[in-house]
Design a protein around this nucleic acid. Structure first.
Lengths: 140, 140, 140, 140
DNA sequence: GTGGTCTAGACCACC
DNA sequence: GTGGTCTAGACCACC
C-alpha cells in the first residue's frame, strides 16, 4: 500500500492518510480483507510518529472502513455499509459541497463546468457494485 | 446584510461568515462598493466573539473579496477575477472533489444522487449574475 | 457533571468516562445542549492526563453523542439517532450479550433471574420518548 | 470438541474459546472429566497461535472450569459452583447490565427488543442441564 | 510482532 | 479559554 504525504496539503497528516486509504478502496487498490501496514512500519516509512498513524487507523475503524483487533494486523472491512439516507448524506457531505460551491464561484466556474469536473472525478471510481444501473460510474 | 449561523454546520463560524458573504455577492445582494457591517455590530448581532468576525473579514480581504482599511468600513471590492482555466480549477478544486467522491462512494451514493446534491447546493447560491449563459444557477 | 473513576474497574479510564456520560444522558442528568467540562478541567479533577479525557470526548463525538467544535465547549448533541435495525443492534450489543450470558451461566443464574436483573436495570432508565408504548421503561 | 472462530465477533480470540467451552459445558456437550484437545492440536485446527490457546485454557483454569496439570491433558473440572446470591450476581453483572442498557438506549431499542435479544442469546446456550426447572433455557 | 492506553509536553487554530 | 495535532516514550494485552 502506498501512502504519500503532501507538505502543501493544509489538512492534518492523519486526515491525508484517512483520505488516501478511502481513495484506494474506491479505486479497488485495496480490497476487503487486505492488510494495512503495521502502524510502526507506516510511521517509519512516512517519517512520522507512531501515534499519528494510530490516530488515522482509529478513525478508519470508527468509520467502519477497517477492522482493528489487538495483536492482529489492520484489515479492510468486509461489510460495506447500506446506502445512506438523504439526511445522512447531507450531514456527511453538506460541508464539503458548500465549500466546493463557494470555491468554484470564486474561480468563476459555471454550474456546468463544476458538474463536468465532478463527472471526470466520478469516472475514476471503480464501482463494480450490485446495482450496476444505479452506481457511481453511471453515465448521466 | 443578513448573516445567520447554522448550528448543524460543522464548519467553524468564521468560515460560515466567509461563505455567506461570498454567496450574497453571487446572488447580487452585495454589490461592489457596498459596506459590510462593522465588526462589533456583526459580532453583537450573532452573539459571537469580536475576534471571530475579525478573522472572517481578514480572510475575505486576503481572498480579494473585500477592502479593509483601518478606520474605514469594510467594502465589497471592485475587482472580480477572470474565470479560471481548467488547469487552475483542477488545482484548486481537485482535492475537494476527490474527497467528496470518495466519501460519497463510501456512503453508497450513486453518481446521480451526488450530482443532484450538488445541484441543490448550487441552487442555494441562486446566481443571477453578469454572465447569465455561463453562471452557476443555469439549468442543466 | 460528576464523573468518578473506579480503580477496581478493569476497563480503561477513557471507557469509564464514555460509559458514565452515556448513563447520565440516559438518566436525564445530561440533556441535549448541556455543556461538558473542558478537557483540562475534567483531567485535573480526575487527576489524569488531558489526552485521556480528549480520547473519551473524541469517542463520544465519533458515536454522535456529543458535539465538539474547535474553540467551543463540548455539548451533548441534539439529534438522537433513529432506532437501530436488528442487524445493527446485534453488531453493537452481541458481544455484550454473549459476555453477559456467559458470566450469568457461570454464576448459576436462571434465564428468569437474568431477565429480571435486566428489568431492574431498565427501570432506572429515564425514557420520555416519542413512542411511549414501545419505550425501554415499558412494563413487560 | 468443536470450536469455531467468528470473524465478526469483536472479542479477542481467547475469549471466544473461553465462551465456547463454557457454552458446551452448559449444553452438556462437555461433561466433567471430559478431555479438551491438546493446545497444539486446537491451535493447529483453528490456525491460530499456540499462546492464544494457552491463554484461553489458563483463564478457564483460573475460573475453575477446567483442570490443567503439566504433562496431562486438560479436563473439565468436577466441581460446579453453587448458584450465586442476588448480591453476588449484581456485583458480578451490574456493570455489564448498566453498559448493555445504556448502549441499547442510545441505539433506540425498546425494553421488549432488548429482552428478546437476550432471549435469542440464551437460546444459543440451549441448556438441558441438571436443574431443568430453573435453567437458562426455560421458556418465559 | 502488533495494536491499545496513558503520561508529558509543545504548538496551533478558533473563540 | 478551549479543542486539535503532533512528538516522544513507557508499559500493557493479545497473537
Amino acid at each position: 500500500m502506498l501512502i504519500t504525504l503532501d507538505e502543501r496539503d493544509a489538512r492534518p497528516i492523519y486526515q491525508q492518510i484517512v483520505s488516501q486509504v478511502k481513495e484506494q478502496i474506491q479505486r479497488g487498490d485495496l480490497q476487503p480483507g487486505d492488510e494495512l501496514p503495521p502502524v510502526r512500519e507506516l510511521a517509519g516509512a512516512l517519517g512520522i510518529n507512531l501515534h499519528t498513524v494510530r490516530g488515522a487507523y482509529g478513525r478508519l475503524r470508527d468509520q467502519g472502513i477497517i477492522d482493528l483487533r489487538l495483536g492482529r494486523r489492520a484489515r479492510i472491512s468486509q461489510a460495506r455499509r447500506a446506502p445512506a439516507s438523504v439526511v445522512e448524506a447531507e450531514t456527511a457531505l453538506g460541508g464539503h459541497l458548500r465549500e466546493l460551491v463557494s470555491e468554484a464561484f470564486l474561480l468563476g466556474l459555471s454550474a456546468n463546468e463544476l458538474h463536468s469536473m465532478l463527472d471526470s472525478h466520478l469516472g475514476n471510481v471503480n464501482v463494480g457494485a450490485s446495482t450496476p444501473d444505479s452506481n457511481m460510474k453511471e453515465k448521466r
